[in-house]
């Protein structure tokens, strides 16, 4: 007969992933980028009569903050829609009735979302860097005007230090990893959810609890003689929820702190292990799911 069936085929995986991305693109998901552009242009224009340090601070906060929020929303909403839509359109059945392992199907879908997030964050970063560069040039011409030549070097250094710094790169990388984590969690939620509304609500709750998990964890570790009930509650929160606040490097970077590569690698590693665990869990549930 024909060629033997491959246990795992990157071509099949890519077919599913690229199709997922294509679907999201044709659903005009990328229109949110207009909103992002509007936000950074708006905040740049609005801040013109502020000091240049303030302008850079707000531009960075705005851009990175909305990058983070947009990628979070995109990850949760696009992933939550995925399985219910596939079931509604029966494409889940047609694909799985082909010789496609469920692992490949679920990985392919997730990969499509990851590609969407990657492209979105990349485009937002490009817009952000362009805005930063334009602002820097504007501030520079303004600041250098009328200065004696021996002082311009200092001023230029000062302005450039407030504009683009290399530590923005790990910060954007963490925004991506965080959104990938949230996508994988949403996928896990959607494998046992009965509706996408349920999935979205669960993911939002996890997002908010994930930001206070650190408080629960630290008070669990700091108070060994708390009551049993509150211990169980604190343990439940700190074991089952990710510490999303730890995964956020933005505030430190914008404040002007350089990120050591050790801390970046540890933080990224933590985020990626969450991603893997949630993806594995989603696969396990999906593998035994009655469709």
């Amino acid at each position: 007969m024909d060629t033997p069936h491959k246990i795992f085929s990157p071509a099949r995986l890519w077919a599913i992933a690229s199709n997922t991305l294509l679907e999201l693109v044709r659903l005009k998901v990328f229109y949110f980028l207009l909103l992002f552009a509007l936000l950074i242009i708006g905040s740049s224009a609005f801040m013109l009569d502020f000091k240049f340090q303030e302008q850079f601070q707000v531009l960075k906060d705005m851009s990175l903050g909305s990058m983070s929020i947009f990628s979070w929303l995109l990850a949760v909403l696009a992933t939550a829609m995925l399985l219910p839509k596939e079931i509604e359109d029966r494409t889940l059945y047609t694909i799985l009735a082909k010789p496609v392992p469920r692992l490949e199907y679920i990985l392919g879908k997730l990969l499509g979302i990851l590609a969407l997030l990657f492209v979105s964050i990349l485009l937002m970063s490009v817009m952000f860097v362009i805005a930063l560069y334009i602002k820097q040039q504007a501030v520079l011409t303004d600041a250098v005007r009328g200065l004696p030549p021996e002082q311009t070097a200092d001023v230029i250094r000062g302005v450039k230090a407030s504009a683009f710094t290399v530590s923005l790169i790990p910060c954007v990388a963490m925004i991506y990893i965080k959104s990938a984590l949230l996508a994988s969690f949403t996928l896990l939620a959607s494998t046992f959810a009965t509706s996408s509304i349920f999935t979205i609500i669960v993911s939002f709750v996890v997002y908010f609890i994930g930001h206070v998990q650190g408080i629960a964890r630290e008070s669990l570790l700091a108070s060994p003689n708390a009551s049993a009930l509150s211990k169980v509650f604190l343990a439940f929160v700190s074991l089952l929820f990710p510490d999303l606040r730890l995964l956020n490097l933005t505030d430190d970077v914008v404040a002007g702190n350089a990120i050591s590569s050790a801390i970046f690698l540890k933080t990224a590693g933590l985020g990626l292990s969450y991603f893997c665990v949630y993806t594995l869990a989603a696969y396990l549930i999906f593998a035994f799911k009655e469709l």
Binding site: D89, T91, T94
Partner: peptide, 11 residues
């Protein structure tokens, strides 16, 4: 396999 009432990918 052809499922009942398939829509496939509209796009």
């Amino acid at each position: 396999f052809l499922p009942e009432n398939p829509y496939f990918y509209k796009y």
